[in-house]
Design a protein around this nucleic acid. Structure first.
Lengths: 163, 163
DNA sequence: TAAAATCCCATAAAAACCCGTTGTATCCCG
DNA sequence: CGGGATACAACGGGTTTTTATGGGATTTTA
């Protein structure tokens, strides 16, 4: 299940008054090389106070994996319930949003709240998927390596100028 | 048997005095990409106090799957009976309803009662199919993951405002 | 002919679309 | 190598279109 193209790099983009954000061009490049969609799927990250994001091709792959798991396992009531729960989380608890010709999405209010995203969004490539953070929450999280926090600080300086 | 387009996302829509409901646009998009129908098929969900819904293209696929299962398995009396039962559930216990040009269906009274749907309907994408819930029943069900209940609460807040 | 379903229209909010501006990196060419 | 020209990315703002929904009016059907 190797994906050929991987998400990598970081960027800090503004969320404007209408709730729009530019998806960094280097991430869009990966999405469009993986498939022909111009769409991203957003979910709450399972471990961090941030969002997890990926493309439809990755979602389909994830789904196929779930299906195979179901067929293989004995269909006891436990396995059935587990399948139902995973399926709900994978699809009902996510939102698919298209980006326009200029590469922007309209940030869905629910996801924006779940990710506690304010007026700036920090994009971090993580290989198969990427993450979207409120940069301050990343700086405050003790589980995040310092080198990564340095990168976040650099992106903030770059933008903030002297503020 | 991979379906290309998957149902995902959530929405809470009103059921009006006439029993009409808008099928969320993002679900309609999937239905129309899967086939050229403007129709959904409703059934009682096998495990949850909710409705299961899908498009005609998926129904055909499900039927083909059942047939294959019958051919493959030894045709003992158990397998035969199982097939007959599944077949009845898949076709007799369902209702097909078209949606109009504005994307609304007239909720069939029987299904509305089976799903215990009141004046709001919570739509949940689950990949190959989607579900329709009375949001309160979802909140009350111990088998539903908390993160998903959060989403249901968000949808209720979004609509309810302060009420 | 009463009840029910379908059609038609209206509207407010939200989403999508189109335009232009700006800053930055890249290219080109003398 | 320098200086402008070029291309593209990240925005901001206005306009158009789509959605969800309400309420008649008209047609079907039992």
């Amino acid at each position: 299940m190797a994906l050929e193209h991987l998400f990598q790099g970081s960027a800090l983009n503004a969320v404007d008054a209408k709730g729009r954000v530019s998806i960094p061009a280097f991430l869009r490049g990966v999405i469009e090389r993986r498939g022909d969609a111009r769409t991203i799927i957003l979910a709450k990250h399972e471990a961090f106070p941030a969002l997890s994001a990926y493309d439809p091709a990755y979602a389909a792959l994830k789904h196929a994996k779930l299906e195979r798991l179901l067929e293989k396992e004995e269909t006891g009531p436990d396995a059935q319930l587990d399948y139902q729960q995973r399926n709900l989380m994978a699809f009902a608890a996510t939102e698919e949003v298209p980006y326009d010709s200029s590469g922007r999405i309209l940030f869905p209010p629910m996801m924006r709240r779940k990710g506690q995203i304010g007026d700036v969004a920090l994009f971090l490539g993580t290989g198969e998927t990427f993450q979207i953070w409120n940069p301050q929450l990343l700086l405050d999280d003790p589980r995040i390596p310092n080198d990564l926090k340095d990168i976040a600080r650099f992106r903030l300086d770059e933008r903030g100028g002297s503020a």
